[in-house]
Amino acid sequence: MSARRIAVVSAGLSQPSSTRLLADRLAAATIAALGARGVEASAETFELRDLARDVTNNLVTGFPSPALESAIERVTAADGLIAVTPIFTTSYSGLFKSFIDVLDPASLTDMPVLLGATGGSERHSLAIDYAMRPLFAYLHARPVTTGVFAASADWGRGAQPGQEDAASGLHDRIARAAAELATAIVQSTRDAGARDPFAPPDGSAGLRSGLSQVGAYGETR
């Protein structure tokens, strides 16, 4: 089975950030889970902070810089996506949403996605389900059912296996979500090479739908 490519989008703003920390752990766990299924995988991480100006410029001009375009291509052509954002003021960060906004809305269709978020306290944890999940549903992506929220406190107790409270801790949630994503990636039939809009239509079907169906002439009688 061919190696799978996982794109990791991290919208943390500080460096280092707990968002990146969570993203790295989700990526490592997913690679391990794929390995357990006999599938080789690699992860590439995109720090949106590094692309912040490019994302803003794209919003203003309507086109991506070469660096951003390359990142968009690699994210949307990946076999799976791990998307992690800090929760700011009840929702995903503005930078995270801005990045999503410069994607072609069809470019994440059927993409297996693992949703992750970080915040100061676990009171924000449902933001994954009431903010992130509808966003990816709109894009026709396929987020796995377990989202992983890491509050500041999660980086203490239960973050490692065997520690006190481990059963309800971050490590187990990461492992569960990673297993779901690994399964989704293995089962995915998504064609990473999305349809090229500039490929000439082959045969008559494309052309007929392009011109004749909509009536290049109206009805000429």
């Binding site: 011109l211 909509v214 009536g215 290049a216 002439y217 109206g218 000429t220």
Partner: peptide, 10 residues
Amino acid sequence: AMEHYGLLHQ
């Protein structure tokens, strides 16, 4: 654009 131009052309 398709229909209108078809008519304009005609």
